[in-house]
Amino acid sequence: MDGLPANLLTDLPPAGPEEVFTRLLAATGLVVERIVSTGQASPPGFFYDQPQDEWVLVLSGTAELRFADEAAPRRLGPGDHLLIPARRRHRVERTDRDPPTIWLALHLGPEQAEPPAQPASPVSA
């Protein structure tokens, strides 16, 4: 596809205040995207509550993802993946800035006209 990276670990956007989402594929019930995080985290007190399942895989860097029903965040590194069931409240506690955290995300379900909104804020060092 024109304009899409041929390699998910190259042609990275420069670090900025926002995560960068690149839609790689969209089909009925499926959106696949690359997410490049450079130190962003969910805003304080914010939890995602998505109407669809989401499967994430960390390709590079590290991140911490916390579920509302768990006391401690889960640390994810290269090769780590997990399924976030629909309506399971979760947040991104932390991502690496340099090197960036690169995610592959699959949004699964009938409500995939658009990927879910992704609020994130930079983490202060």
Rank of each mutant, 00 (worst) to 15 (best):
Asp69Cys: 08
Arg89Tyr: 00
Pro115Val: 12
Asp53Ala: 13
Phe21Asn: 07
Arg91Phe: 06
Gly109Arg: 04
Ala68Arg: 12
Gly29Asp: 07
Gln52Phe: 14
Val123Ile: 10
Leu108Tyr: 15
Gly61Pro: 01
Leu82Lys: 11
Ser60Phe: 02
Thr28Asp: 12
Val32Arg: 02
Leu65Val: 13
Gln40Phe: 04
Trp55Arg: 04
Leu82Asp: 00
Glu111Pro: 05
Pro78His: 00
Leu12Tyr: 08
Ala68Thr: 15
Arg88His: 02
Gly77Thr: 02
Val20Gln: 09
Val56Ser: 15
Ser121Tyr: 12
Pro17Val: 06
Ser37Lys: 13
Gln52Asn: 10
Tyr48Ala: 09
Ala86Thr: 08
Leu108Gln: 04
Leu106Thr: 02
Leu24Tyr: 03
Trp103Leu: 09
Val92Cys: 09
Pro14Ala: 06
Ala63Cys: 09
Leu106Arg: 08
Pro122Trp: 04
Asp98Leu: 04
Asp2Pro: 15
Leu82Thr: 03
Asp53Glu: 14
Asn7Arg: 11
Arg87Gly: 08
Arg87Val: 08
His90Tyr: 13
Pro100Ala: 11
Gly61Tyr: 04
Leu83Asp: 03
Thr38Gln: 00
Pro100Glu: 06
Phe21Cys: 03
Thr62Val: 07
Pro78Gln: 02
Thr101Ala: 06
Ala6Lys: 05
His107Ser: 10
Ser42Cys: 07
Gln112Arg: 06
Leu104Ile: 00
Gln118Leu: 10
Glu114Gln: 10
Arg94Cys: 04
Asp80Ile: 11
Phe46Pro: 02
Pro43His: 02
Pro51Gln: 05
Ala117Glu: 09
Leu83His: 08
Pro99Val: 11
Ala27Ile: 10
Glu111Gly: 10
Arg66Gly: 05
His90Thr: 15
Asp53His: 11
Val20Thr: 11
Arg66Ala: 11
Asp98Met: 07
Pro110Asn: 08
Arg75Gly: 06
Ser42Leu: 05
Ser42Val: 11
Phe46Tyr: 14
Ala63Thr: 13
His81Gly: 12
Val58Cys: 02
Asp49Phe: 02
Val58His: 04
Pro5Ile: 05
Leu8Arg: 06
Leu24Asp: 11
Trp103Ala: 13
Gly109Glu: 03
Pro73Phe: 06
Asp2Lys: 13
Leu57Cys: 13
Ala125Asn: 01
Val20Lys: 01
Arg89Asn: 05
Gly45Tyr: 02
Thr101Gln: 08
Gly29Asn: 12
Arg75Glu: 09
Gly29Ile: 05
Pro115Cys: 08
Glu114Tyr: 07
Ala105Glu: 01
Leu65Arg: 03
Ser60Glu: 04
Leu25Pro: 09
Leu59Tyr: 15
Pro5Val: 07
Gly39Met: 01
Ser124Glu: 15
Phe47Val: 09
Gln50Gly: 03
Asp2Phe: 13
Leu108Asp: 02
Ala113Glu: 14
Val92Tyr: 00
Leu57Lys: 01
Leu25Tyr: 15
Asp11Ile: 03
Met1Tyr: 12
Ser121Thr: 11
Arg87Ser: 15
Gly3Val: 05
Pro116Leu: 03
Phe21Pro: 04
Pro73Lys: 09
Pro5Gly: 14
Phe67Asn: 12
Pro5Asn: 12
Pro17Ala: 07
Pro13Gln: 06
Pro44Asn: 03
Ile102Glu: 13
Pro85Tyr: 02
